[in-house]
Design a binder for these strands. Structure first.
Length: 109
DNA sequence: CAGTTGACACCGA
DNA sequence: TTCGGTGCCAACT
């Protein structure tokens, strides 16, 4: 029952909220699922307003599995702490076994 | 209304 | 192989 009245941002929020516990995805994967593979940057932009949207932005990382958006979080290593809290190994802002915890919306959905 | 920005991704040196 | 620069697309100022 999705309304196409949703903007690109809202669509990103919807997908982000679908990310299962202990899993992560990439901006490009979400953009690809939305049909805007070249708009990966927009996905990150959308996450900027994720606060108050119940969107687990900490589960969204770049193609390299690197916590590039960590800086946008409240403090400093909050994003990394959240991921580790879900069982995801993160070392120096880099997700370990990225392929193992990777969740592709276009593939799972 | 027009210009700049940006939590990325890809290509080339 | 590592580093740098360019490209894309929609939102934000």
């Amino acid at each position: 029952m999705q309304q196409e009245t949703l903007n690109f941002f809202d669509k990103v929020y919807e997908v982000a909220k679908l990310i299962p516990y202990g899993k992560v995805t990439s901006y490009g994967a979400i953009a690809n699922y939305l049909g805007a593979a070249r708009s990966a940057r927009m996905v990150g932009y959308a996450m900027n307003g994720s606060v108050g949207k119940d969107v687990p932005a900490h589960r969204v990382v770049n193609r390299n599995g690197l916590l590039t958006g960590k800086q946008h979080f409240d403090g400093t290593n909050l994003m990394q702490q959240l991921l580790e809290n879900e069982g995801i190994k993160v070392i120096d802002n880099q997700i370990q076994d990225f392929e193992t915890v990777f969740w592709d919306p276009a593939k799972e959905l």
